[in-house]
Design a protein around this nucleic acid. Structure first.
Lengths: 138, 138
DNA sequence: ACACGCGCAAGACTAAGTCTAACTTTAGAC
DNA sequence: GTCTAAAGTTAGACTTAGTCTTGCGCGTGT
């Protein structure tokens, strides 16, 4: 479950440090799509002295080095996603939580027909409710 | 081209005022997907005394009443779109500008197969370059 | 051992947006 | 037309998320 974070960082060209490992440890092992502040809060549970700037620096570093993906929600909050492969997103209207949708669950066609646009990447953003949820409050 | 803004507002249940008309006048007649600050700047050209709060209030009002749509870009900036019908978005990597893609240009299939998700709406967000643009700088 | 550089901390700073309190305008009643 | 209450507007304080700056300390290579 939890491989050697130290190695993962190094493999992606990031020099490890206690703080960076702590951040990576958390953010690479959750599917919760946390915000930067959430990451900071979590990490501080085991590493109380880490500064905000370091958390932000580390997250940005990880994004730059392809270890993490940044995603901005409709309400403007930006969250991080350890799932760096292509996938779509479903946003729960009620809780705001994001769920990853496997790439192959959806198919977008007619992309070729877009005259004048050279598409590098795309993604479907869905919004709605989870079916059969008995209203769990966040 | 420019219908009676006063009437449009009233038809959507918004009591017109000089400030509101000025904001609506601009934002309903552009396809530029402006930010709130951009709207404020534009409106001030003809209405210098309008306050920031009023611009924000008016834009939010218009969104609530379905005259406008809010859209958050990947970098977290939120912009407004007078095109309230369903459509997709293409974000130009180079300039950051957004282009509306007609709903029927793309087709998303297999939506039904999403077990457990009750989709209320969705949208494809594409990213890339405009084809054949001779690098116009923003 | 030494110095150089990288990373970290703390807090100042910025940008975008919301909130508040006081003032002004408007619509409707008389 | 005048009055009043409600609605709208203003300026600026406040909040939140994030970046920048400055200085310190530790590790590493020679």
């Amino acid at each position: 479950m939890k491989i050697d974070i130290d190695t993962v960082l190094r493999e992606h060209g990031i020099q490890p440090s206690a703080q960076r490992v702590a951040v990576a440890q958390y953010v690479l092992n959750t599917t919760a799509h946390p915000t930067a502040e959430k990451v900071a809060a979590e990490v501080r549970k085991t590493f109380p002295m880490i500064s905000r700037a370091t958390v932000y620096n580390t997250l940005n570093l990880m994004v730059e080095h392809g270890l993490l993906r940044e995603f901005v929600l409709d309400d403007g909050t930006t969250v991080f996603d350890a799932n760096v492969g292509s996938h779509h997103h479903f946003v729960d209207d009620e809780t705001g939580r994001i769920h990853d949708i496997p790439w192959d669950s959806l198919k977008v066609s007619k992309l070729e027909a877009l005259e004048g646009f050279e598409v590098r990447e795309y993604q479907v953003v869905l919004r709605g409710r989870l079916r059969g949820t008995s209203r769990r409050r966040s």
